Simulated scan of single mutants.
Amino acid sequence: MSRLGDLGARLHRGEVGYDFIGKRMLWYGVSVLITITAIVGLGVRGLNMGIEFSGGAIFTTPQTTVSTERAERLAEEASGHPVLIQELGNGGMRIQISEVDTAKSDQIKAELSKGLAIPADQINADLVGPSWGAQIANKAWMGLGIFMALVVVYLAIAFEWRMAVSALVALIHDITITVGIYALVGFEVSVGTVIGLLTILGYSLYDTVVVFDSLKESSRGILKQNRFTYSEIANRSINGTLVRSINTTVVALLPVAGLLFIGGGVLGAGMLNDISLSLFVGLAAGAYSSIFIATPLVADLKERQPEIAALRRRVLAKRASAAAKGDPDGGDGGGDGDAADDGAGPGDRRSGTGPDNGHRPGDGAPAAAGVSGPPSPRGRGTGRGRPSGRRR
């Protein structure tokens, strides 16, 4: 088994781990700082809206020997507006100028024909009105709203409303960061950007749903045991799916990085840049938020439930009592969220605690905590009151 595979198995068994839940305030602070930076960048610099939203003209020329720098100067002098030029595969150019009406378009076309030594009838001019861009923006916002509503409804039914709320917060976090990066970098917002933003919504939720599913299974029957708090079980669920989340994210980011740095950088600005930047930032932010935002937030919300809070008090009281008696097996997992961080000690791999733990013999609390391993025939309290240790 590879080192990464061995690490994944040890994380799943709870032998090693990182205290994600216990250090959640640190990650909350990091996320707030990143989000504030994105919002400030969005407010100060604003978004560089493409002609699909602001209106303008796109001129497409046939093959020409004139350099892009020369063509850019000609177009700027003729229009009086910033110009975006992309070289085409056939040797031609795509010249994009914002805020240009029909009369101005004809004038620019004539100037380009003269400066580039190309007949005017061979230069194709496409005008885009701002109303069309407004329609696209409205439909995009509508699609985003419908998507989020469906996500909340589905997660509330499949899991619970606390997980639905946490996933929604993580989703808004990812979109805000992606849009803020666009503002800071200065990339043009085009239809490709909208496509990329809508695409990352599903990717953003993928890792979150994987962790939530593991947490749902691990916390089943949690109130029938006194060994682990909900936060500790949530922490084990994150660690158990950590390597899987890293693998899927890296595999998804590699081709997107190829589009962004090779396709956009080598082939020039255009639709590739617009889509790939939003995908790249969104995928990375989605992987981050599923681990550091969504699941810790679920743990915070669940710990506010009276029965979960009572369970926490019972677990801590049991550990305090065991520590006072000097029982090394009494502190099953440590403090808030550090069960996985401490590793699976002798008490983490024992069998169940008898009829009062809500599990079959051999399941034990480790199953509830998302830790697998062979049951020990010498589990404490197994078959309490019955020499055979079996249920009747």
Rank of each mutant, 00 (worst) to 15 (best):
V179F: 02
T61D: 03
M49F: 13
F228V: 00
S351T: 14
A134P: 01
L88I: 08
S98D: 12
Y182L: 14
E188C: 04
L7M: 12
G202A: 11
G373V: 08
V66G: 03
S67C: 07
Q96I: 13
L205Q: 11
S190W: 00
Y288C: 03
P375D: 14
Q86V: 12
A323D: 13
K216T: 11
P119E: 02
R314K: 14
G373Y: 00
L127Q: 12
A140Y: 13
R13V: 00
P361K: 07
G389V: 00
R3E: 11
G286M: 07
S376G: 05
A134M: 06
K224P: 01
V298Q: 09
L47N: 04
Y182S: 02
P375L: 06
P387H: 05
T60F: 03
I146T: 08
L4R: 11
D6L: 12
T241S: 15
V66F: 00
G56R: 04
L297Q: 06
S376D: 14
G92P: 07
G263A: 07
F292E: 02
L259F: 14
P361T: 14
G192Y: 10
E232T: 15
G265M: 11
E188H: 08
A299Q: 03
G192R: 02
M49A: 12
V83G: 08
D19R: 12
E188D: 04
V298T: 11
A369F: 01
Q135A: 11
V185D: 01
L184S: 03
I238A: 00
G192P: 09
V165L: 15
T208L: 04
A269M: 11
V243G: 01
T249R: 03
I291P: 06
A339P: 05
D348C: 08
T176P: 00
I246W: 05
G43Q: 11
K109T: 09
A38M: 09
I97G: 06
R313A: 15
A170W: 04
V251N: 09
E217T: 10
R384A: 12
G335R: 06
T60E: 15
I195E: 05
P328T: 10
L253W: 03
L311R: 05
Y206D: 15
S218N: 15
A284E: 06
T353W: 09
V371H: 08
K216Q: 13
G89P: 04
D327Q: 08
A234T: 01
R162L: 08
F212K: 01
A367E: 12
E77P: 00
V165D: 00
K302L: 06
I51Q: 09
I200A: 07
G17H: 06
F261K: 01
I108G: 02
I21S: 01
Q305D: 14
E217A: 13
V266C: 06
Y203C: 02
I275N: 08
I275W: 04
T176C: 03
S351L: 04
R350V: 07
R70L: 13
R391A: 12
K302C: 01
I95E: 08
T176W: 02
L260C: 06
